[in-house]
C-alpha cells in the first residue's frame, strides 16, 4: 500500500507550501495522477483523508485529474493515446513506445484560505 507513503509526501508538500506562502487552510487539492502511474485512484482517496488529519488540509476536498497515457512510436513517430505501457503502435504495430504522458504524480494546485 505505497499510496499511504505517497499521500504522506503530498501532506509534506502542502505543509511546506503553507509555510512558504502563508496560508492556514486548504479547501481543495488538485492531484494529477497519470493513468499509467503506479497509483490506484481509490487507494489514494482513502489514504489522502487519513494522511491529511491534523494538517492544514484536514478537511480539504481532493480532486484527481487522471491524465491518459500517450505513447510515441520510435519507428514511425506516431503519437497516440495508449491503455498500457506495452501497447503496440496503432499505426505500424511496433512495440517499445516511448511514454510521453500519463505517468505523472503531481500536486498541481491548491485552493487556500
Amino acid at each position: 500500500m505505497h499510496e499511504m507513503s505517497l499521500a504522506q509526501n503530498v501532506r509534506e508538500i502542502i505543509e511546506q507550501a503553507a509555510r512558504d506562502q502563508g496560508f492556514s487552510q486548504v479547501k481543495t487539492v488538485w492531484l494529477e495522477i497519470g493513468r499509467l502511474s503506479c497509483v490506484e485512484q481509490e487507494a489514494m482517496r482513502f489514504c489522502f483523508s487519513a494522511a491529511m488529519q491534523g494538517s492544514v488540509a484536514e478537511d480539504a476536498q481532493l480532486e484527481i485529474i487522471d491524465t491518459p497515457g500517450r505513447g510515441l512510436c520510435p519507428k514511425c513517430s506516431h503519437e497516440a493515446e495508449i491503455e498500457n505501457v506495452y501497447d503496440a503502435c496503432s499505426q505500424c504495430g511496433s512495440y517499445g513506445l516511448q511514454l510521453v504522458a500519463g505517468d505523472a504524480m503531481r500536486v498541481k494546485e491548491l485552493e487556500v484560505v
Binding site: 508538500i13 507550501a17 512558504d20 505523472a104 498541481k108 494546485e109 485552493e111 487556500v112 484560505v113
Partner: peptide, 25 residues
C-alpha cells in the same frame, strides 16, 4: 517548489500553483 504567483480569487481565498512531483523528495 515551483512557485507561481498566486492569483487572488477573493479577499482571502486564492489558488496556489505548485506543480510538484510527489516523488520529488
Amino acid at each position: 517548489l515551483h512557485r507561481v504567483e498566486a492569483k487572488i480569487a477573493e479577499d482571502t481565498q486564492r489558488i496556489v500553483k505548485l506543480e510538484q512531483d510527489i516523488l520529488h523528495k
